[in-house]
Design a protein around this nucleic acid. Structure first.
Length: 155
DNA sequence: TATCTCTAGCGCCCCCTGCTGGT
DNA sequence: ACCAGCAGGGGGCGCTAGAGATA
């Protein structure tokens, strides 16, 4: 049992590894952007984003991905059409949990993302970002910096 | 013990659609 | 009626973090 959080494991080795997340130790450094990672695997995946290396290739189309998880998700979206996350209130189902979470907000009416300049509130972050254009008149891509400024105030 | 694999999660961007107000 | 602007709903991918599985 971790004394710092709710984590529990049957293996001492898992607990030892877990304890590292409570420290800031990130010994694996990307020499291209100086970002640091806890594990070599994370660094390797990150380096692949710099080099464009995509080892996980889809057998049914030309797509390729940095991680196996991305490939698995792609295959669900495009090939197997498996949608394990099902809404209990309607027939909607999704490939991803986060999509179901976003969908459920359409039932609950929850709008966690508030505009700092008017009464508008959004159900997801990108809608708020898009909404911010109406205050500035700038294009979405030109608006990133001011959006981040507004977001810091709002959140 | 190190590495691989899987799952979870946040984010970004895009598309389509419906509503609304101006012309 | 038509069009532009805007918001709602959702699809798809990029990337990182953490933990289980395995070599």
């Amino acid at each position: 049992i971790c004394v710092l959080c709710t984590f529990t494991s049957l293996r001492m080795s898992s607990l030892n590894r877990h304890m590292k997340i409570h420290s800031d130790e990130k010994p694996h450094l990307c020499h291209l952007c100086l970002r640091a990672f806890r594990t070599v695997t994370l660094l390797r995946n990150h380096m692949n984003t710099h080099t464009g290396t995509r080892p996980y290739k889809c057998s049914d189309c030309d797509m390729a991905f940095v991680t196996s998880g991305e490939l698995a998700r792609h295959r669900r979206y495009k090939h197997t059409l498996e949608k394990p996350f099902k809404c209990t209130l309607c027939k909607y189902c999704s490939v991803e949990a986060s999509k179901l979470k976003r969908h459920i907000r359409s039932h609950t009416g929850e709008r966690p993302y508030h505009c700092s300049l008017c009464s508008y509130a959004s159900k997801d972050t990108y809608k708020l970002k898009r909404h911010m254009i109406t205050h500035s008149g700038k294009s979405l891509s030109c608006h990133n910096e001011s959006y981040l400024f507004y977001a810091r105030i709002a959140f």
